[in-house]
């Protein structure tokens, strides 16, 4: 268990009042085991926050908990979205209120056409009026993401390559215009070209109307999407926050110096079993980490 590392308190934590997204002392369980041990994070529109951390440090858990995944239980703490209690909202309410999660492993749903799904999502977020401009907007976003119109007739993520799935996530994000967008390891599993397209898509969205939380364990993503703030998440806690230079330091020296620094301060970090002490940099396989593993029917 972690004692609060006072010297590593997030640098912009002075006031979370009036913030777009304010997370205070968030604790999250999966299957009655605590994974997130108290996170404080404030994100405003116009800001890009990067969350770095080794595998198993709780990055994705944070993302799913914020997006109301039924398997992730918030046991204590507060989260406000534009001053409203996010945790009291259902997942769909969170979305309609401007929160978006770009999934690391988007779910494939056979039988649901992409175009029809997007139209319904736009209607849910913006009302009937959005349907009128939907076509035009869609065409524009497809062009930016170098996606063909034929995607719209395909089933939702069904048979999509890794890159296509990520592009489809960015497309949804671009259309739904969230105020806070969480990107969970969007860079994983992408080849260089797809990566570039995805990064361009995100950069095209950047601006004063949206705040980003970019979760990654590679610095590569942050070379394209320059963060304003960088947080290091280890053992279910944000152990260090800083500016872009922190991402560079992690890239060059890994997480070991930060861990040593914490140890000198007498802070113990609980490491996840699956991550191990070595922080292997291999990509997790989809099966092992996919929180969407379906226990339902196959071959639908």
């Amino acid at each position: 268990m972690v004692a609060a590392p006072a010297t590593n308190a997030p640098i912009h934590q002075s006031s979370s009042d009036g913030a777009t997204l304010a997370i205070r002392d968030l604790h999250v369980n999966i299957d009655s085991r605590e994974i997130i041990h108290g996170i404080d994070l404030t994100v405003n529109k116009g800001e890009v926050h990067a969350i770095l951390g080794p595998n198993g440090s709780g990055k994705s858990t944070l993302a799913y908990a914020l997006m109301g995944h039924p398997r992730y239980a918030v046991t204590s703490g507060e989260v406000e979205l534009k001053g409203e209690d996010l945790l009291a909202m259902s997942a769909d309410e969170r979305s309609r209120n401007g929160l978006f999660l770009c999934f690391q492993y988007p779910t494939s749903i056979p039988g649901i056409q992409m175009g029809n799904f997007l139209r319904l999502a736009m209607k849910a977020r913006f009302g009937d009026a959005a349907i009128k401009t939907f076509r035009k907007e869609l065409t524009e976003k497809l062009r930016i993401l170098k996606m063909d119109e034929s995607y719209m007739r395909r089933y939702l993520n069904e048979g999509f390559s890794g890159g296509e799935k990520k592009k489809a996530e960015i497309l949804q994000m671009a259309l739904l215009k969230p105020e806070i967008a969480i990107m969970d390891e969007t860079d994983s599993g992408l080849d260089v070209d797809a990566f570039k397209v995805v990064a361009d898509g995100v950069n095209a969205m950047r601006g004063p109307d949206v705040g980003f939380v970019v979760i990654t364990h590679y610095n590569r993503m942050l070379e394209y999407i320059k963060p304003d703030f960088v947080h290091v998440l280890i053992g279910g806690k944000i152990v260090k926050s800083g500016g872009p230079e922190l991402a560079l330091a992690v890239d060059q020296h890994g997480y070991q110096p930060i861990l040593e620094e914490l140890r000198e301060q007498g802070v113990e970090i609980e490491l996840m079993e699956e991550a191990g002490a070595t922080y292997a940099r291999e990509e997790p396989t989809e099966r092992e980490h996919d929180p969407f593993r379906s226990h339902g029917l196959t071959g639908l």
Partner: peptide, 12 residues
Amino acid sequence: DQMHVYYLLTRG
């Protein structure tokens, strides 16, 4: 499949 439903919920 609740995971299918959840994905659609997250899109509002």
